[in-house]
């Protein structure tokens, strides 16, 4: 686990342990922390693959500028994992080459 333990745990003000999924697998995270933080805490670094080359991508700037960490959250594509607070039961998916569709109405 990469989460800071003990006293430093207070560093995050996030709430209770909750469960969410990433690419169908179940993970634990803290309610209210950014999705990217919860995934990193679980050792998940690859958030998506580049649309053209298929190369893996993860957190880069951490503050919403670079759009590298975009994922699909509960069906909404292009969501920045570094800026979006985690909620119980969230379904997070990688965006992969050819899978970024915007066809559904």
């Amino acid at each position: 686990m990469l989460r800071i333990k003990g006293k430093d745990r207070e560093k995050g003000r996030e709430g209770d342990q909750i469960t969410f999924t990433f690419n169908g697998l179940s993970y634990q995270g803290l309610a209210g922390e950014p999705i990217a933080a919860a995934l990193l805490a679980n050792g998940v670094r690859t958030l998506r693959h580049h649309e053209k080359s298929g190369k893996p991508r993860g957190i880069y700037c951490g503050i919403g500028h670079c759009y590298e960490c975009r994922v699909t959250v509960d069906g909404v594509p292009g969501v920045r994992a570094c800026l979006t607070p985690l909620k119980e039961g969230m379904e997070v998916m990688s965006e992969r080459a050819g899978e970024v569709t915007s066809n559904e109405n």
Binding site: Y60, C61, H65, C66, Y67, E68, R70
Partner: peptide
């Protein structure tokens, strides 16, 4: 010309 529009 991508998503970050050159910010990086």
């Amino acid at each position: 010309m991508g998503m970050c529009q050159g910010r990086v």
